[in-house]
Structures are given as structure tokens and as C-alpha cells.
Nucleic acid binder design. Structure first.
Lengths: 230, 230
DNA sequence: TCTCTGCGAATGAACGTTCGCTCTTGCTGC
DNA sequence: GCAGCAAGAGCGAACGTTCATTCGCAGAGA
């Protein structure tokens, strides 16, 4: 889909809409390579997986594979880029939710569910680890994080202006906490460990309510605090 | 990095004020290797760091290094094992806390603080990733996780028996959530990203209170629930 | 003496990548 | 329609490098 190489050459676009055109077939092949690479990376890690392993997984020779991606690193980058696109899509849905707490819970659950359904949780861990040492991956990873964080920030700011968030909470700390909690739950793939999604959602909702302290719970908590502190 | 290549070549160094026995010196050298290896692993990852890099970091030849550890993998295992020991020590302190919420917050904060102070957060990520594909590391990592989880479980069970936890919460889901949240916060090294420790502690306390619903907040929350549901 | 510790060149395997080659595809002029 | 042809797609042996690990040797301490 969004692989960096397709149609990168100045080739005249073939008009054959018959079955699969050349460009279409090229895209399909690139996609197959990415899927195979993912499988290998999950199995052996970015550094542990060899190009020969990936070749075997796609059923392609090294020479053929290198026609689609100029290096191993470019494959990793393409995977990270696809992740970014997907995260942006999830974030876009946040505005459909009726309240701050629900919006944040929704995004969190979407993230957890997606990583579980696709089995990409180990890959996520891998990308995180790789981003700590590989510049290209770090850039892609950071950009992705920032996309999500900016989306959250804008959303929370608007909610705060509407008075849906206790004005005493610090937005920056909150954001970092959100991201950390979401990440922790996602990489641990809780559903795979037998934790029902409903339990996670209930907990996430309780957590978000405690952190955001939306208006309807605020007076009660405040009362609780002043009561226990006096 | 408390080991700046302290001129420890093969030359006999009579800097020892005390008479260090052979076994003691051997332990010290092994420790130096582990520290150097950690630094290299943080920099390049387990698979990315080469034995030659580690050798250079310790100031030792490959031949010498292999007298202490029979393989690269055994170094990784030793590091994971040391982690396990440390986690157990942190867990042991949980019983000193006055209440469930405080106990859990204490352990969480200890964990976050330790990973920040030692700069081991990237190493932690690395171990997690490696544990997904390397059997020996997985075993060490799982054992470590289980130690902590069992410690938590025992602690929470006792607290539940004392009535400090809302009986309607599911212990297993709770445990998994605790571990995930703690891990997320730890690997993200929030203090390094400018989030004050106090903010983290406040948030952690709010989260734990919301999840455990200890007796003193329970009636109020229950009242809230029945009130909003009716 | 013998054992422990350390050295560093050497080794063979595995790695990412390249290259020359063949076969296929789809466009061109006729 | 079809021969001709350039370029795309694929192959797999080969390349140069780097890796983890080994080994024969040497000095130091007991």
C-alpha cells in the first residue's frame, strides 16, 4: 500500500485494468514481503531475522526481494510507517465518543484489541527496542508517538475547555501516563493471557475516571479528600 | 557507568589495599564484564552488540572474557538473573506499607525510580524483546515476572481477607493490569521525559485506589454507581 | 612446579548485499 | 496479428565482511 518503492520510477502507467496490472502486482508482492518480514521479525527480532529467512518465508530469492526493498532497514521502516498510518486511523475515531473518559477508553481498547487480533504485540515490542538504537526507526517511531500524543493533547484540551476535566490535572503528565499505560497493556497482550476484554475496559474506565476526574465525580472526590485530610 | 575502563589490563595491579583472594578478584572481573555488557546492550541491543565491543568496553581480550562466560547468551542470562534478584528485594519491602494502596504504590515507584536511576530502562525493554525469542532468557524473564506476580498475589490476598479490597474485583485481572501498568511506566522512563516523580506517584495512587476500591472509598463509589445507574 | 588468567590471531559460519543471468511481460512499428 | 525488443521480475551463486568462538601460548601467583 504505502510502501516507498512502488511507482517510484518514472515508468509510464500501464493502462491494463485486465486482472492485475503490473503496478498492482508489484504492490501485492511488496505487501507479501512485508507480511513475511513481520512474521520473521516476531520470531527472531529485527537483528536476529536474516534476509535469507525472509526470502524463504516469501518464497523468493534474495535478488528478487532486493528489487522491492533496497535494504533490510528499509523493510523495517516500511513496517513502522504502516503502523503509524494505522495509529492515526484509530486516533481519528476518538471524536465520535460522547465524553472524554469514553473517548480515551475507546482509543485504548481499540489499540489493545488491534494488537491482539493481528498478533502484532511482539512486533510492537521489537519496534520499540529497535527504535532505541536505530536512527531511522527511532524517527519513524517518534513521529508515530507524537502523532498520537498530539491527537490526544488536542482532544484533552478541548475537553478541558468544556470543563470535562478537573482543571487541577496537569495535561503533560497526564498524556505521558496515558501513553505509558496504553503501551504497557498493549505489549503485554492481556487478552492472550486470559484477561477478558470487558475486565480491561472496566479497569481502563476506572483509571481514566480517576485521572481525569470529570465533573460528575469531582465534588465527591474533592469531598473525600478534604474529609480524609482534615 | 561507574567503571570508566580503570586501567585494568592484564598487568598485575597492586592497588588492592586489602588482600583480595583469587575468588574475590574473579567475582569482581565477572561483575565488570556484566556492567560492560549492559552498557553495550543498551547501546546496540543484545543481537547488535558484538563480543568484541564488550571486550573493548571491559578492556579484555576475547580469550580472557570467555574464561568467565562460556557464551554471549550466558552473559544475557546472568543479567536477567541479577534483575530477578533485585525485583525480589523490592517486592520484599511491600509489607512495610500501611495499606494495600500504599504498598502497591510503593513497589511501583521503587521500580520506576530504580530503572530511572540506573539508566536500565532500555535494557529492560531489550530483555523483554529478547525473552520473546530466546528460550533461556524467556525462562529467566518468566521466572522473574512470576516471582513478582506471586508476591503481589499473596499480598493482595491477605489484604482482601482483611477487607481492604472490594470483594467484587477479580484478583487475576487486577494482577495482570498492575504488571502491565508498572511495566509501561517503567520502560518509558517517565522521569527522564520531564514528568516529576510526585506526579507519577499521585497518579499511581489514584489509579490504585480506583482499581482496588479500598473500604474507605467504596460506599461513596457504590453510591455514585447506583445513583448514576438509576 | 601447576593452575589461573590473559592474550590475540585464527576459524568457520552466517550475514547483508551484489551481479550476471534467464525468463516473462507488454509495448512498438509494421 | 506479429516479430522485435526493452525493461521488469526472478534466480541463486558468490562476495566481502563481521560475528561468536577457539586455541596455542605466556606470564603470574601459589
Amino acid at each position: 500500500m504505502d510502501n516507498p518503492l512502488n511507482t517510484a520510477f518514472g515508468s509510464p502507467e500501464p493502462q491494463t485494468d485486465e486482472a492485475t496490472s503490473r503496478a498492482e502486482r508489484r504492490d501485492q508482492q511488496a505487501q507479501r514481503i512485508l507480511e513475511a518480514a513481520k512474521a520473521c521479525f516476531v520470531r527472531s527480532g529485527f537483528q536476529g531475522a536474516s534476509m535469507h529467512q525472509i526470502c524463504a518465508e516469501v518464497g523468493m530469492s534474495p535478488g528478487a526481494l532486493y528489487r522491492y526493498f533496497p535494504s533490510k532497514e528499509s523493510i523495517i521502516e516500511a513496517i513502522a510507517a504502516a503502523d503509524r498510518k494505522h495509529d492515526a486511523e484509530i486516533m481519528a475515531r476518538i471524536y465520535a465518543s460522547p465524553s472524554v473518559v469514553e473517548g480515551v477508553v475507546q482509543v485504548g481498547m481499540d489499540h489493545i484489541r488491534h494488537l491482539h487480533d493481528t498478533g502484532d504485540a511482539p512486533l510492537f515490542t521489537e519496534i520499540r527496542a529497535e527504535s532505541m538504537r536505530n536512527d531511522a526507526v527511532r524517527v519513524a517511531c517518534m513521529a508515530c508517538m507524537e502523532d498520537v500524543e498530539n491527537g490526544f493533547r488536542a482532544y484533552l484540551q478541548k475537553a478541558a475547555e468544556r470543563g470535562e476535566i478537573d482543571p487541577c490535572v496537569k495535561l503533560d503528565s497526564l498524556l505521558a501516563l496515558f501513553m505509558s499505560i496504553g503501551e504497557g497493556m498493549a505489549i503485554n497482550d492481556l487478552p492472550a493471557r486470559g484477561i477478558p476484554l470487558e475486565d480491561i475496559e472496566t479497569a481502563l474506565r476506572a483509571i481514566m475516571t480517576a485521572l481525569l476526574r470529570p465533573r460528575e465525580t469531582r465534588s465527591r472526590v474533592a469531598a473525600n479528600e478534604s474529609e480524609t485530610q482534615n
